[in-house]
Amino acid sequence: MRRGAFLLVAVGMLALAGVAGRAQDVSGGGSAATPAATEGRQVYEEICQACHMADAKGGGGAGAQIPALAGNAKLKDKDYIVTLLLKGRGGMPWFTEMLSPAQMAAVSTYVRGHFNAYPEPVTEADVKRVAATLDAPSKPDCMTCGN
């Protein structure tokens, strides 16, 4: 995939993949996959805290951990969190199919400012800048998805 076409493609995937993109046994409800939230705090609560927990401290036992976002020095570089949202990491998926660049910027700003002491906002332009340097993840394959 050519670089730079990433965000355009990501928006297209919203319509194509929907909820069914990830879960391979699907409900069949077939409704929109995007949260309506625009504020960073709301996006955090609706998406991120499913794994990273309400206090952003992550959790789990030794060898089976969800990383903490609170007090995480890696977040000092704002491109780090943006890259995670765009590319995923380990068990964490990318969120290009679920969140708009504006939502990614908002939640990045919130996580860096609220759970860490990095007040400088992450902008939509930052998200697009980082996205332009990355290859987009391709659509989840779905031969047995039930959609």
Binding site: G18, V19, A20, A23, V26, S27, P35, E46, I47, A50
Partner: peptide, 11 residues
């Protein structure tokens, strides 16, 4: 609930 709805519910 899967996808975004699953995350909202899990949170």
């Amino acid at each position: 609930a899967g996808g975004a709805k699953g995350y909202a519910m899990a949170g």
